[in-house]
Design a protein around this nucleic acid. Structure first.
Length: 472
RNA sequence: GUCCCCAUCGUCUAGCCAGGUCCAGGACACCGGCCUUUCACGCCGGCGACACGGGUUCGAAUCCCGUUGGGGACGCCA
């Protein structure tokens, strides 16, 4: 029965990272698509750690992958399962296949197989296992492996949910190792046994797995199981159009958190890499769940564009609650040496700051002048605006604030304009020295807003401090 | 080398399945302008693509074939 049919069992997808490294962008997108597909269909999402390679699998990577998944909000319904805990199960299935004549023990030394492979490659042939032990009827022995006995003729065809029908001639497939000489399963065996045991209905994975698919379908059949439906999503490429890797700079998901990106922004960016919903660019996670579908996934590989992520992050930052941003900011402030501040000021400042800051890191930078006891004076700004003329302006501004307070912006603006007119200058002639006095910088939110969230006392104090500097 | 996949602006993409309404739409980036107390936001405008060649058709970005280009895979990694 076809799992996609309406009367079929429920949708169950899985994300099976190998804990040999951190969760990177490509893996995160695969996880996201599986998660979205399951959520969209009201199905279940399973997390499974493919740690059959005991050499390269590391606990620290498991930890960081789970952490990244949680940060992204990709919650799983079952797992994490560990393949390393199921070795007996895989071994039993491999032995069963041998007993049924669907697999066989192979005594070929690994080095010899490797040599033949290289020779074939050098000759320009397809490197395949030559089947030396295929019909020898060998039994177990030290160093022996179990190979799957694949069909020699015919072809396996499957209908990829993203790419359409894909066909592989069996002559292109060789007898792959399913159980290593140390008794551990290889990827192909473990993945198939698990997907059967875990009742996975849809396998959504990277493009680089298409040619594994016919081998796995053959394995499902040998095990007497119904294959799931497959959907191969295109790769994510780096700027050089090659498969995304560490060479392309930041690829680990957690690196984006550290750079000050919001998880929903990364999710949004990843979702739009290869998937689309008309012309819509900005999505909330809920909207993604609502609209996601495999039919709208493109076939071509996509280049990850950091500029788009930044833009999306900026957008999501502007729509996030100030309270939440304030709660996310401490690490970024700490990185700037700021460990204590008036949170009320921060909360009031954030809405005026986010329009200018694409990331939390920059938000921390822009918030700094308002959180420090005294702003750090930018030298160029000080030289340009805090001069004797500026001192006179600051004195008048201070008088104004003393008289009118900082809450009444219209009144302050009127005062500023009168002063500017008196000086025969534009508003900037008053605003800029004031801005430098209050923030130490030439760029900030509107000057009356700044006064508003800084508060009367701080404003007066900074005005006085700057006036002294200006007088020399 | 062999096999598999892919091919619309610099990038992400809509359109393609059910050919005409597409001298191809949106977004990012870039450039110009407006707004303006600075920097941004925002708004307006500009630049910019159907890889190439055949075929089918009255008509092709859309269908077919080929070429070229790109990617992926060919492990006792996953």
């Amino acid at each position: 029965m076809n799992p996609a049919a309406d009367n079929s069992p429920k949708v169950r997808t899985r994300f099976p990272p190998s804990p040999t490294g951190a969760l990177h962008l490509g893996g995160a997108r695969t996880a996201l698509f599986n998660w979205l597909f399951a959520r969209h269909h009201g199905g279940e999402f399973v997390l499974r750690l493919e740690d059959t390679d005991r050499e390269r699998s590391k606990d620290e990577h498991v930890t960081s992958i789970l952490e990244a998944m949680e940060w992204l909000g990709l919650n799983w319904d079952e797992g994490p399962f560990y393949q390393s805990k199921r070795f007996d199960r895989y071994r039993a299935e491999a032995l069963r296949l041998v007993a049924e004549g669907k697999a066989y023990w192979c005594h070929c030394p690994a080095e010899l197989v490797q040599q033949k492979r290289e020779a074939a490659l050098a000759r320009g042939d397809k490197p395949q296992y030559d089947g030396t032990c295929r019909d020898l009827g060998l039994g177990p022995a030290p160093g022996a492996v179990i190979r799957f006995r694949g069909p020699r003729v015919g072809a396996t065809v499957f209908n990829d949910l993203v790419k359409g029908p894909i066909s592989f001639d069996h002559a292109e497939l060789d007898d792959l190792v399913i159980l290593r000489s140390d008794g551990s399963p290889t990827y192909h065996l473990a993945v198939v046994v698990d997907d059967v045991d875990m009742a996975i209905s849809h396998v959504i994975r990277g493009d680089d797995h298409v040619n594994n698919t016919p081998r796995q379908i053959l394995l499902y059949q040998a095990l007497g199981a119904m294959p799931p439906l497959f959907a191969h999503v295109p790769m994510i490429l780096g700027g050089d159009k090659a498969k995304l890797s560490k060479r392309h700079g930041a690829t680990a998901v957690v690196a984006y958190r550290e750079m000050g990106y919001l998880p929903e922004a990364l999710i949004n960016a990843l979702a739009r890499l290869g998937w689309s919903h008309g012309d819509q660019e900005v999505f909330s996670v809920a909207e993604l769940v609502e609209h996601f579908g495999l039919e709208a996934v493109g076939k071509g590989a996509a280049v990850f564009d950091a500029d788009r992520l930044a833009h999306l992050n900026h957008h999501h930052l502007q729509h996030a609650a100030p309270e939440r941003l304030a709660a996310l900011l401490p690490p970024f402030l700490a990185a700037r040496g700021i460990t204590a501040w008036d949170n009320e000021v921060l909360l009031k400042a954030i809405p005026h700051l986010v329009a200018r800051t694409p990331t939390l890191r920059e938000l921390a930078d822009w918030a700094e002048p308002y959180l420090l006891d005294e702003p750090v004076m930018d030298q160029a700004a000080q030289t340009k605006f805090l001069n004797p003329a500026g001192a006179a302006v600051l004195k008048r501004v201070a008088d104004m604030v003393t008289a009118k307070g900082v809450e009444d912006s219209p009144a302050l603006e009127e005062g500023f304009r009168e002063l500017a007119a008196e000086l025969g200058a534009k508003l900037g002639a008053v605003a800029q020295p004031t801005r430098v006095a209050l923030t130490g910088r030439t760029a900030s939110p509107g000057i009356f807003e700044v006064m508003g969230f800084l508060g009367r006392e701080r404003v007066l104090k900074r005005l006085e401090h700057a006036r002294r500097l200006a007088q020399g």
